[in-house]
Amino acid sequence: MKLVWSPETASKAYIDTVKSCELLHGSSVAELISAMAAGWNAEVIVETWARGGAILVSIGLAVAAHHTKGRHICIVPDEESRAEYVEAMSQSGQSDYEMLVGEPEEVIEGLQGIDFLVVDCGGDNDFARIIRAADLGRRGAVLVCKNAAAASRAAYGGGFRWRSVLEGKSRIVRSVFLPVGDGLDVAHVGAVGGNSGEAKRESRWIKRIDRHSGEEFVIENELSCL
């Protein structure tokens, strides 16, 4: 089994997030992330959040979890952040989520089978450690770093490297930088065991080297959307 894209579910989550965020002046980032989480039918959706952060993406993830009938889990570093998050989500009408309090890279170790993970490149002290500590789903996973503009990625020499972040723990099917909001870096990592358990069929893979970043992409020709 592996993550399978559902355009219908993605569209529903996108539209519902647009409606939910209209009263909060809208956010193209929230709608996009919500559509990705719903479209990939994520069953375990995890985000990190800290006091003072924007709440729109969290609303989008809650909407996505509703459509996939999955879990939406938010990890916050302290009680002040927890209280602010609960208040903001309550004002938006969202209540179906789980809260975990503590250092994100430690708390996330207690979660299993994460399908969709959102971290804040600008807010988390070391988002790479959080990603490395995550137990990703056997069907594969989608990883999203928000606020990933060049200024937020200075620690990586001006160029984000998924390979260095993951340190070989997962096979990168595809990665992309999206110039939305303050930037989104997104990676789709492959299922554990590849195509084991599925009907045998020929698969064709495309390998490409990004001339600007030097990063290598390995893309399955059946991948219809990230």
Rank of each mutant, 00 (worst) to 15 (best):
Q91L: 15
L23D: 10
A83F: 05
L56E: 02
F177Y: 15
S34I: 11
Q91M: 15
E31L: 09
H66A: 10
T9L: 15
S81P: 02
Y156S: 04
G214N: 07
G26L: 10
N221F: 07
L56N: 03
C145D: 00
I108D: 01
W162T: 03
D126G: 05
G70H: 09
F116Y: 05
K169W: 09
V76P: 05
A134E: 01
H25Y: 12
A83K: 05
A30Y: 02
S81H: 02
C225S: 12
R161P: 03
S34H: 08
R139K: 12
R51D: 09
Y156R: 00
A141L: 00
G194D: 12
A191E: 02
S11T: 08
E43C: 07
I131N: 08
I172G: 01
P77D: 04
F127W: 10
K2Y: 07
G113K: 05
R71H: 14
G110E: 11
N221W: 06
S95L: 14
F160C: 05
E220I: 02
K200F: 06
H188K: 12
F116I: 01
C74L: 14
S196Q: 09
R71Y: 13
A191M: 03
L100P: 03
H67L: 13
I45A: 08
T9K: 06
D126W: 05
L117T: 00
V186W: 08
G53A: 15
G194A: 15
D126K: 10
A151W: 05
H66P: 00
G70L: 12
I131E: 10
E215G: 11
F177M: 04
A134G: 07
S152Q: 03
A42K: 04
D185N: 13
I15L: 13
L226S: 05
A13H: 01
I33Y: 04
G70C: 14
G181A: 11
K169Q: 14
S92V: 10
A150L: 09
Q112S: 13
T48F: 11
A62V: 01
V107A: 08
A50T: 14
E80G: 07
K12W: 06
V101M: 11
L117N: 00
H188Q: 14
E47S: 15
L24G: 05
S152M: 09
M36K: 13
R161K: 11
G123L: 15
S175V: 02
L166D: 02
L223N: 08
G168F: 13
E106F: 07
R153T: 05
G190Q: 11
A10D: 04
D16E: 15
V18T: 06
I45D: 07
F217G: 00
G93R: 09
M36F: 15
Q94I: 15
R211D: 13
I114M: 01
D135L: 09
S58H: 03
A83P: 03
H212G: 10
D96A: 14
L100D: 06
S152N: 08
G183D: 08
A128L: 07
A37C: 14
D16M: 07
N125L: 14
F127H: 00
D96V: 12
R139V: 06
K207M: 11
V86D: 02
S170E: 14
N195D: 12
R171P: 04
G110P: 02
L23A: 12
A10L: 04
A10I: 03
V218A: 04
L117E: 00
L184W: 06
Y97L: 13
D115W: 00
K207V: 14
